[in-house]
Design a protein around this nucleic acid. Sequence first.
DNA 1: GTGAAAGCGCTAACAA
DNA 2: TTGTTAGCGCTTTCAC
Lengths: 337, 337
Amino acid sequence: VPNVRLEDVARVAGVSTKTVSNVVHGYTHVRAETRARVERIIAELGYRPNVTARRLATGRTGMLALAFSDVGLPYFAELARVIGQEATRRGYRLLLEQTDGTLDREREIVSDREAGLVDGVIFQPGALTATEIAQHARDVPMVILGEGKAPVGVDHVMVDNIAASIEATSHLLALGRRRIAFVGHESPTPSATSLWRLEGYREALARAGLSVDSGLLFATEAISADAADAAIGAALDAGASFDGLVCRDDLAAVGSLRALQDRGVTVPDDVAVVGWDDISMAAFTRPSLTTIAPDLRELAVVALDLLEQRIAGETGLGRHRITGYRLVIRESAPRAN
Amino acid sequence: VPNVRLEDVARVAGVSTKTVSNVVHGYTHVRAETRARVERIIAELGYRPNVTARRLATGRTGMLALAFSDVGLPYFAELARVIGQEATRRGYRLLLEQTDGTLDREREIVSDREAGLVDGVIFQPGALTATEIAQHARDVPMVILGEGKAPVGVDHVMVDNIAASIEATSHLLALGRRRIAFVGHESPTPSATSLWRLEGYREALARAGLSVDSGLLFATEAISADAADAAIGAALDAGASFDGLVCRDDLAAVGSLRALQDRGVTVPDDVAVVGWDDISMAAFTRPSLTTIAPDLRELAVVALDLLEQRIAGETGLGRHRITGYRLVIRESAPRAN
DNA sequence: GTGAAAGCGCTAACAA
DNA sequence: TTGTTAGCGCTTTCAC
């Protein structure tokens, strides 16, 4: 198929390539008559601009990479949805990169081995530390999502996890719960996210004059409902006793619900449960989940704002932005009194 | 930042660009000594190949588009996960396109207005019919996913929805259920997917000597747990009575579970429920969901096989491939006796 | 085994 | 308002 080029259109229309280009881009300085003729020829010939050539000439790809561990996880899927919409709104296409949270894949994301693949990167690291990011980072505009620390040079957007965790835990305390457990931090090495959430949990207990019972910290082998089910199940079978449960995320909450109910423990009467993320399923578990709902829309908007500024040439130190959340009260930990 | 080009490396190394290119691509016909020197210079200068230029020269992008309505929906998220992995394994990157199931966005996907964006497209249409696809389609290699008809020229991969639906419904019949309802087909215009599944449901009833009670067909306003919750709730409140429920998908099942339980109906004792998709949450609802589990891995492999053949130049009529599924038995409709 | 040069298709500075 | 032309950075014949 002999492809139709801009030049072909120009030749047939009897104008220069520049004029055709002007028409294609809707520039105003083209005589109406000329424009009409060129447009007719474009349609006749079935001309379509070649994006690759345009990119090479302009140096812009119109693409953003979104990198995180796994779109199969509800939180990331819902994040991808919103970021995808926001990217489209701003005229960008989205490249999806799944790292599985492995160091190798994450290093590849950051080191950007091929130049000019995308205009910018939105990256939620799992394993990579700020130091490593700084070490491997190239000069692609980048914004880091999530609770890990970011290198001084790069922009970072996150929810205030300590504050949110304090709020979640305090909600349980307000319900009169005193033996409050935590589940879902990864074993043996908890992620930064888990550490922040644990920290908020500790802080809330401390404010209530309680201290953490390390026998009520239930680590899991993975971020999944299965792992939480197993961990809580084992804990209960071993005689653990608690009346409140803060979950690292909704997946952990979903798994915990099952383990509790399988053993005849009633939620919220025996144990009140709060989750984190407000995934769409959270409203449909039984009981439905009280959970921390990060404002994904705001997160996406702020992240893309920062990224677009970098793409536009903004230099200077990395900015740090905190985005909103709220505690959504549902059945698993109802409103007090 | 004066970017390092292939030519710069060549000049510094004192060789031609062709030789540098050979080294970069690991071609064999380069003297070991030369190769070492070039590699050293590449490292020293921090040279990175420019993908865009490469694409323009080769005409290949190394990218595939994955287009469907909404990654936020668990089924699509889990599909994207697997297709992403399979694409990576084959050396492709994945572009994510969300259509929201709207005609406009779907037409854009198919008509491929810009040339050379991706090497191929994997597309699950929602609103677009085979006729429209054929009308708007350009010559990008494409494979259609899902239950809609595909134009004669394009490859198509789907699960045998009628067979699967018969199996799901028959499972309920084997449990002794006789008043079996169906929920989740869209109103007013059911998708092709819904129609196939309804057809299998009808067929299974017919084989058991039963006919469809149109009062037990509960359409929904959207593909969501909320919509199913509302539809089943309204039906029960209006006095509908049934002992089995076939759901168009797991989201409908999840919503139905809630509506049923909110009204004191016990699952599976009063009503046995089967879902469709086996989303990861299906194992964690209470009761857990008996559901049709499509083999996503096979789907991804088959789709990419077909697509790669087209990319490699395969012409000819569209191939039609059926991929596997199984009925996963869980609590919502346990094994008979 | 290595080099020279002609594209790939479009953009944008500069002229006219 | 429109035309000319020199790149953008890499690949790839075809010579040597």
